[in-house]
């Protein structure tokens, strides 16, 4: 059962931040509750006051900023992202990922900010947004700061967010010319066994930039520089790709991996390699469609 707590329902960001300060720190921000309330039920967290930020305008909305970056309010639900015409157009892999996240009820209630702030090692959005070079914007009474995903997610269930900071939004850079972004996962149980996100640029038929992120395999979603490097310069449509992907897969052989209910560390690394092949192909398809 959810233990007893006090509730504050602020209407502005300032009210929310003030409410936190007023508790002296025995408080937490609440959005969809799909993670936080579950943790409280299990007795893993005793929190005096929950500050419900769903009414705070700063945390809402999906828009394209003038500089082309996509801004997702932290309290935007998975369903809103999945159904957003803007996201479907600008970042179809994110819309697709959201469609296959958890179940319909969790997607209806859960928010992107809550997902990232919980830092579950199997998080789909965290892995994808990491590869995309996305950032999160945090606010506290002492000011605002913007962190890239890999500086934000610092450990399993652990982020750089201070207790008094609330996540305002997530920012995703626009695709460069000839850029494709993809995400794929294998899930045999409730959470993925492995997931891979690929962001690459194809110019004149060759891969000129690449980023590879692997999720669910290690304690945090991780960028795999070796895999990305192996893809660089490869002929996106020709015979050279096979060798490059094989080399990139090889770079996954020594990534940090932790056994879990999905299987051993070795098996999860193997799954990541299987996914990398699929994700590279999908990213190239998007890149070339874009071109």
């Amino acid at each position: 059962m959810i233990p007893r707590f006090s509730l504050v329902r602020p209407h502005t960001l300032d009210e929310a931040l003030a409410a936190f300060e007023a508790t002296g720190g025995d408080a937490a921000y609440l959005a969809g509750g799909t993670e936080l309330l579950q943790v409280m039920k299990l007795g893993f967290a005793q929190i005096g006051t929950l500050i419900d930020v769903k009414r705070v305008p700063d945390l809402k909305g999906i828009e394209r900023r003038p500089d082309g970056w996509l801004r997702l309010g932290a309290a935007v639900t998975h369903r809103e992202i999945e159904r957003s015409e803007l996201v479907r157009h600008e970042l179809p892999a994110l819309a697709g990922l959201e469609l296959h996240l958890a179940n319909a009820r969790v997607r209806n209630a859960g928010t992107i900010g809550g997902n990232l702030a919980f830092a579950e090692p199997h998080s789909d959005p965290a892995t994808f947004l990491l590869a995309c070079g996305a950032t999160v914007l945090l606010a506290s009474p002492s000011g605002r700061r913007e962190l890239p995903i890999d500086e934000f997610v610092v450990g399993p269930l652990f982020t750089a967010r201070e207790a008094d900071e609330v996540m305002i939004s997530v920012q995703v850079p626009p695709a460069a010319a000839g850029e494709g972004r993809s995400y794929d996962k294998l899930a045999f149980f409730e959470r993925p066994a492995a997931s891979v996100a690929v962001r690459l640029t194809v110019r004149d038929g060759a891969i000129t930039a690449a980023t590879v992120a692997v999720g669910s395999v290690g304690p945090v979603p991780a960028l795999v520089a070796g895999a990305a490097e192996a893809l660089l310069g490869a002929d996106a449509g020709g015979d050279g790709l096979e060798a490059a992907v094989t080399a990139a897969s090889g770079a996954l052989a020594d990534i940090e991996a932790e056994a879990d209910l999905n299987g051993s560390a070795d098996y999860k690394r193997h799954l990541a390699a299987v996914l990398l092949r699929r994700a590279v192909a999908a990213a190239i398809r998007e890149a070339q469609a874009d071109a």
Binding site: G33, L37, Q38, D52, R105, N108, A109
Partner: peptide, 10 residues
């Protein structure tokens, strides 16, 4: 659709 088990009545 919502999971009423984890949806606060408020």
């Amino acid at each position: 659709a919502m999971s009423a088990c984890t949806y606060l009545a408020v």
